[in-house]
């Protein structure tokens, strides 16, 4: 890897102080190449959400630094940093302001960053909607009139509106039905290829990870346990915890049963 696009170097994050001090993340170093999809995997309390918030600049790290394209991101992000890193959240119900039309939510992104000429922004909003597979007329609709999958597409369009090269996807499909999930995952995959986007894909769902990520980082209790290319991690996980995660995934085919059984026994996956 030449210069990593996103580089997390020795990051630690502590909440509270004194006796109530909680170390949410400790000694984490990670690199993500441009155009790569890195899956961040872990259960509740693993620190994966803290990592997302640190990358987004919701709060600064207690120690260590986060570099984007070779430059350190400051604790107080400037507007161009906001524009460069966007978020797609888990819950499509709350991610859009219920009192505002879909189009107005997308306009906000264009207005804040003064993207394109003012007069052309409504047309731009329609193009964004079409790019995520929704009809342009949806701009006039209220979020309440959209299904969960459609709202998630709008949230993705909003992230695209800023032309951000890096997206943090925080469980983007775990609240969706399985057929809708497949559509949205494909959309995310297509967009990454077409636009050359870089993803930090936060999830607890290993079967999704297996099919969308290039590399995986496994977290447990605020520590990075292991990282590796996705195929390698599923073939021969180094850590017992990673093995237990894979062995716990509910599966639907006999081939998957066999893989799980091999991994649970600690052997190589054929």
């Amino acid at each position: 890897m030449a210069t990593p696009f996103l580089s997390i170097e020795g990051v630690r994050r502590v909440f509270g102080s004194g006796a109530g001090e909680v170390v949410a993340l400790d000694g984490v170093s990670l690199q993500v190449a441009r155009g790569e999809c890195l899956a961040v995997v872990g259960e509740s309390g693993s620190g994966k959400t803290t990592l997302a918030n640190l990358i987004l600049g919701i709060y600064p790290p207690s120690a260590g630094r986060i570099m984007l394209d070779g430059a350190e991101l400051p604790a107080r992000r400037r507007i161009e940093h906001r524009r460069a890193i966007q978020l797609v959240q888990q819950n499509p119900l709350s991610a859009l302001n219920p009192r505002r039309s879909v189009g107005a939510s997308l306009r906000l992104a264009l207005d804040v960053h003064a993207i394109g000429p003012r007069a052309g922004r409504d047309a731009h909003v329609r193009r964004l909607l079409e790019e995520v597979g929704l009809p342009g007329e949806f701009a006039r609709r209220a979020p309440a009139a959209l299904s969960g999958g459609q709202r998630q597409r709008v949230a993705i369009a909003r992230a695209l509106a800023c032309e951000a090269p890096l997206l943090v996807l925080d469980e983007p499909t775990s609240a969706l039905d399985v057929l809708v999930q497949a559509r949205v995952l494909r959309l995310l995959d297509d967009l990454r290829r077409q636009r050359g986007l870089t993803y930090v894909f936060i999830t607890h769902d290993l079967s999704v990870v297996r099919n969308v990520a290039d590399r995986v980082a496994v977290f447990e209790r605020g520590r990075l346990l292991e990282t590796g290319p996705v195929a390698q991690l599923f073939a021969a996980p180094a850590h017992a915890y990673t093995r237990s995660l894979i062995a716990a995934v509910p599966v639907v085919t006999p081939e998957e049963d066999a893989l799980r059984a091999r991994i649970a026994q600690g052997g190589p996956a054929s």
Binding site: I58, I85, Q86, L87, Q89, N91, S94, L96, L108, A155
Partner: peptide, 13 residues
Amino acid sequence: EEGYVLAAEVLGA
């Protein structure tokens, strides 16, 4: 605590 507030903040509003 709603997601749309976070979204606006991340957007740079």
